[in-house]
């Protein structure tokens, strides 16, 4: 009796519930509209503006594309930008992956400490981190003081405004982006697999290359993609540490758009940056998938 009554009482409430229920996918609409209006349309505009010849944006034509790709200087800038991205990816992986391995072998308590150390620089402003590297890399900076004190070199090394110095700085600036996805994958890894590998007589190196690395590859790839994308577009770090001697696409975009006011040429440079970064990201993803097959074989 009471069950039946409850059943009857519930029906209208349910009816209202169904009526009031928005189809859940509709909740994505506000964001989709915001993206369409303020992200997609501006990017398409970039494409449109690049197809004008003059700075006043009145004459259609591809003069700026021809100018950009007919000039070895712009080719070199594009190449250097992509190269900087890959150098940073290599450096962060070389130093970041061992950190992830140490994290993997630590107790939960230390894992929290390591995670904290990794996230702290991510949350301290990029400008602050860049500033720190001026203090470190300068003529009388930390590195040069150490080098002179140890007697490695009689004169201070030139580190600011060099590619080496910039890659060193970017390694720290971008490191958290590599480590977060990597640690995420590593913390979900089954520890028994590594124990089994060791119990079966594999050395630590063998376990690293045959078990840990292949299993953590998705996280490593995701991290490398983020580092590549972020380091190629890191305007402030590139400009402040690289100076005027090292020219990368972001500096070119900034100069052309806000100093010279040549928006069509700036658009060409921005689209070149966009395409080359996308290609780099796709390349990293492909290499990752290929090597996965190779490591397993």
């Amino acid at each position: 009796m009471s069950v039946a009554a409850a059943g009857v009482a519930k029906t209208p409430a349910r009816g209202i519930a169904t009526l009031a229920k928005p189809a859940e996918w509709q909740l994505a609409l506000p964001l989709a509209l915001a993206y369409a209006a303020f992200f997609l349309v501006p990017l398409l505009l970039l494409l449109a503006v690049s197809a004008f010849e003059d700075e006043k944006i009145t004459v259609l034509g591809f003069a700026n594309w021809r100018k950009f790709f007919g000039d070895p200087f712009y080719w070199k800038v594009t190449f250097d930008t992509v190269k900087l991205g890959f150098l940073t990816v290599i450096a962060t992986t070389l130093i970041g992956y061992p950190i992830a391995l140490v994290y993997l072998g630590s107790s939960p308590r230390w894992q929290r400490v390591i995670l904290f150390i990794v996230i702290l620089p991510l949350l301290t402003s990029v400008v602050v981190r860049t500033f720190a590297w001026i203090v470190i890399l300068g003529r009388e900076g930390v590195i040069n003081q150490t080098v002179m004190w140890l007697g490695i070199s009689p004169a201070p090394l030139r580190l600011l405004q060099t590619e080496v110095g910039l890659v060193m700085a970017l390694t720290q600036i971008e490191m958290p982006l590599l480590l977060l996805p990597l640690l995420s994958v590593m913390s979900r890894m089954d520890p028994n697999l590594r124990d089994a590998s060791a119990a079966l007589g594999a050395s630590k190196w063998r376990t690293l290359f045959k078990v840990t690395l292949p299993l953590s590859l998705p996280g490593l790839i995701a991290g490398c993609m983020l580092v590549f994308a972020s380091s190629t577009t890191a305007f402030i770090s590139q400009f402040v540490i690289g100076g005027n001697r090292l020219v990368y696409l972001p500096l070119l975009i900034w100069q052309q758009s806000l100093v010279v006011y040549n928006w069509p040429l700036a658009s060409v440079a921005a689209l070149t940056l966009l395409v080359s970064v996308s290609l780099g990201v796709v390349l990293i993803a492909t290499l990752g998938r290929r090597s996965k097959g190779y490591v397993h074989a």
Partner: peptide, 24 residues
């Protein structure tokens, strides 16, 4: 597809978007 689209700003160079937004 929508999910991937929403994550784009993370991979695309923000600087290109900055210029695009200024012109827009």
């Amino acid at each position: 597809a929508l999910d991937t689209f929403f994550m784009w700003p993370m991979i695309l160079p923000m600087l290109a978007f900055g210029l695009a937004a200024l012109m827009y």
